[in-house]
Amino acid sequence: MSITVRPLTAEDHELIELARRTVDENTDGPDGIYTMGAAVRAADGRMFAGINLYHFTGGPCAELVALGRARAEGARELTTIVAVGNEGRGVQAPCGRDRQVFLDYHPQLRVILPTAQGLGSVVASDLLPAGFPWAP
């Protein structure tokens, strides 16, 4: 299977910056808490940020918080998402749970992540090619 990686656009960099600002301004710091910020762009251009709620029971990932915030604001068509780690860790790939949620709710969502060629974006459905086809 071949995954098509697209180069980033100016809008993608704007989304990365929102996620980075969100995590930098709200991080729990380097001591034991794994803080991530995320940002998602809606088809109408609005951007929504989220931050994870780290908890030993498996609190929600930043990407899921951003998706929920977008939904709460009425954004149903989403185009791009990114997650950025605290303490300068930069753009991070989504975890398996996030990939499954993307596949179920927004399979054509572009996901910004690190690749062998540097940062790029891929279609969410390419990240979980044999994912369970759950339908809400």
Rank of each mutant, 00 (worst) to 15 (best):
D44H: 09
W134D: 06
R110E: 14
N86Y: 01
G90F: 06
R97F: 13
Y105K: 04
P107M: 02
A66V: 15
R97Y: 10
L127I: 07
R97P: 02
L127K: 01
R97K: 12
A72P: 03
T79M: 03
I81V: 15
T79L: 10
H55V: 04
N52Y: 04
V111D: 05
F48K: 10
F56P: 15
V82L: 08
R89G: 11
G120L: 07
S125H: 04
A124E: 05
G74K: 09
G118Y: 03
R69P: 01
S121F: 00
A116T: 05
G131C: 04
Y54L: 12
R97N: 10
R110T: 00
T79E: 15
G59M: 10
V111L: 03
N86F: 03
I81S: 14
T80S: 14
M47I: 15
P129C: 09
D44S: 11
G118V: 06
V65G: 06
G96P: 01
R69I: 10
R69W: 08
E73M: 14
A66M: 14
S125A: 13
E87L: 03
A116Q: 07
A70N: 13
P107R: 00
R69K: 15
V84W: 06
V122A: 08
S121M: 02
F132V: 10
A49I: 04
L127R: 01
V84I: 08
E63F: 09
G45A: 13
D126Q: 08
D104V: 13
F102P: 04
P94Q: 10
G59A: 11
A130D: 14
F56C: 07
R76H: 14
P60E: 10
Q100F: 05
A66D: 12
G85E: 13
A116M: 05
G96V: 12
V82M: 08
A72F: 09
P114Y: 02
G68W: 09
L64I: 15
D126W: 01
I51C: 07
V101N: 02
L67P: 14
L113Y: 01
L53F: 08
E73V: 04
R46M: 11
T115A: 05
V122M: 05
L113C: 06
F132C: 05
T79A: 08
L64K: 08
L67D: 12
G88W: 03
G120E: 07
E63W: 07
G74P: 06
M47P: 01
S121L: 05
Q108P: 00
L127G: 03
L103F: 08
V111S: 02
V111C: 04
L67H: 13
N52M: 07
V101Y: 03
A75I: 09
G131T: 04
A49C: 11
T115Q: 05
E77Q: 14
R99Q: 15
L128P: 00
E87F: 02
